[in-house]
Design a protein around this nucleic acid. Sequence first.
DNA 1: TAGGCCATCTGGTCCT
DNA 2: AGGACCAGATGGCCTA
Length: 221
Amino acid sequence: MCSTMEGIYSDLDSSSYDQSFSITDDEDSRCSMITASPSSSLGQPCSPAVSQETAVPEQQEKKRRRGRGKGDGALHTVKKNRRVKANDRERNRMHSLNDALDSLRCVLPAFPDDTKLTKIETLRFAHNYIWALSETIRIADLERTGEASTMHPAGLNRVADAPSPGSDACSWMSSGSSSSSPSYGLSNPSSPATSEDYGFVQADSVYHNYHNFVTGIYCQN
DNA sequence: TAGGCCATCTGGTCCT
DNA sequence: AGGACCAGATGGCCTA
């Protein structure tokens, strides 16, 4: 998950870094933080989430020093210790957030090239995925009640016209290519009325991909 | 090399 | 008072 961090800290400008405070005096608390990741409480057997815990402590140490201090170097000991503790909590909090994102990635359909989704892609993907599943239930209910013929979207049954799920799966499910101005601020998340709500450009294409998705193409590993 | 993504530090604000 | 949360700043890594 994490690439090598060799030589990162050694390249840091020591003068700018020392303006903050010496972080090495907090070695113990930081080590305890690394091993105390709350990811296990999430209950998802997900390798990406675990990798953070099992990373080489030396690499973790170097990675943790990447952030740049902005202090004036005149922090009192009490204030400094408080800041160090706050940094630890903040780091831990962000690790928890990342673990949650990893768990979320685990329950989303995998892509053919097994590319790890970015954070924003994961959130958008999950958003669309939930919507697709909701639509599946809704349409299934409609079909059961005999109203499906009037409620189906136009392109839903034209499976042959659907684009290949391989290359554009990510762009659809994550809306990754629509980072310019996608609208995710729905007033009612349970009823995404239009494809435009998700930044989709072509409604037909949406339903083609959606059909591929609900028929299992995107779920095959 | 520029841009995207990410981890970390930091100070402010709100809450308990 | 201390912790949680947040956003800005900074710098490293990776890729086109």
